Simulated scan of single mutants.
Amino acid sequence: MHYKLLTPGPLTTSDTVKQSMLKDWCTWDEEYKTLVEDIRSKLLMINNLSNEKYTVTLMQGSGTYGVESTIISSVGENDHLLVLKNGAYGERIHQIASIAKKNVSALSFSETAILDSDVLDQYLTQNPEVTHVAFVHCETTTGILNPLESLCEVVKRHNKTLIVDAMSSLGGIPIAIDELKIDFIISSSNKCLQGVPGFSFIISSKESIMKCKGNSTSLSLDLYDQWVNMESDPGKWRFTSPTHVVRAFYQAILELINEGGITARYNRYLNNQKLLVKGLGTLGFECCIDVTIQSPIITTFLFPENKTFTFQSLYDYLKGYGFVIYPGKLSNLNVFRIGNIGDINSNDIELLIMVLNNYKTKILKE
């Protein structure tokens, strides 16, 4: 049996999602195009959004492609983007905008602290030239869940365009997109919706995406042109789409709906995460961040104070028993990360804890 991915994506998929990729598809075929349109409709439906006000654009490539597409297409020549960052993925948004030569500034926070809406409020008051604000909802550098509601309230009170990187949260955490007035929210096929890697998707208000015309500094990542093409020729991407991935994603959405929707999935992830923290806590592994700002997606643990411990020894031991975890990504702390999203349940987490207990007993020596 292949190992299970305890990572924030790619992640472990169901057997039925895997099996759905065994058939080949033609991108021009009406059956395939209907499938694409159904995906776009269902993404709105599961997020309680109206197709009169919101739309979905699918974009080839990983989640970062979707983020880059949104940034370079929504921020115009005379606009100014503010990026909030408290980890590697917020930093990546800043890098994308800088390389694209967009007008951009940043507010930086500690990697182990949430984004501060009061600081944001003060900054926007003092810097009226800002037109767009972008931040990461679940910063998987640590597993922090940034305060989406308060941040969105500040951004919209200042009448700015709001861009949310919800790569590791959309589909796994309920998000009131319409109520929060989010202009663009981005995720990908291989995260909480439990598909496989290959494309990203952007949910946007129609009013906001229509303002993107002519802004993109890339041909293939032009969000506006991709959307116009999908609207004028339903189900057709501008360039070759990852057909097998699309079919797997369709199956994954059906399985999300059958599970009970986003709230039911959130509850499963939350239960997994609580079991994980409790179990590792009994073995002496401490969490990096406070429980009050911890997401149910991925948890960062500090290295134990043990001279024989190395991440590689832990990784190799767990892989030998069928689990793969993530290395740390913090700049000044020795940590490792364990995700609990995907086709993972409480039995998997309990087995992991047993294996970790064996690792501590057999491998770690004071």
Rank of each mutant, 00 (worst) to 15 (best):
G63M: 05
T57D: 12
A252R: 09
L107E: 02
Y266S: 11
N146A: 09
S117F: 10
V67D: 09
A252V: 04
L314G: 10
E153S: 12
K236I: 06
V119S: 04
C288E: 14
L352M: 08
V335A: 14
K278I: 13
Y54I: 09
H132T: 06
Y54R: 00
L333E: 08
L107K: 02
Q226E: 15
V56F: 07
E30T: 15
D116C: 01
S189V: 02
Y224R: 09
C212L: 03
K278N: 14
Y89V: 12
T361F: 10
D38K: 07
K23L: 04
N332Y: 03
E207G: 02
K23A: 10
T12K: 13
K42L: 03
T16F: 03
G171S: 11
K102C: 11
E255P: 15
I325L: 14
V136S: 05
A166W: 01
G66W: 04
G198L: 14
Y123P: 04
I96T: 00
E111A: 06
S98N: 02
N357D: 08
L314Y: 06
L270P: 05
G281N: 13
D116F: 00
D165K: 08
G320F: 12
H158F: 06
L58V: 14
I202W: 08
E91F: 05
S110Q: 08
I93V: 14
R247H: 06
K18L: 07
T217H: 08
P10L: 06
W227T: 10
K360A: 10
E77G: 01
S346D: 15
D116E: 14
D116N: 15
K278D: 13
G279M: 07
T27K: 10
V335Q: 00
T13D: 01
L180R: 00
S220T: 14
K307H: 01
C192P: 04
L145I: 15
S331R: 07
L256F: 13
G235V: 02
E91V: 06
L151F: 01
F285N: 03
T240F: 07
T243V: 05
Q251S: 07
V130Q: 04
V83D: 01
L283N: 02
D116K: 12
V17C: 04
Y269P: 12
S331F: 10
L352D: 09
Y266I: 11
T13E: 10
E153Y: 00
N215H: 15
I257M: 10
I363D: 01
I175A: 03
T12M: 01
D225E: 15
V355A: 03
A248N: 06
V119I: 15
V277W: 04
M1L: 12
K102V: 06
G90T: 07
G143P: 02
H137Y: 15
T7G: 00
R40Y: 05
S208T: 05
Y3W: 07
S200V: 01
G261T: 13
I71W: 00
S62R: 05
I202K: 07
D316I: 06
T112D: 13
T112H: 04
T7M: 13
K42I: 03
V36S: 04
Y54A: 07
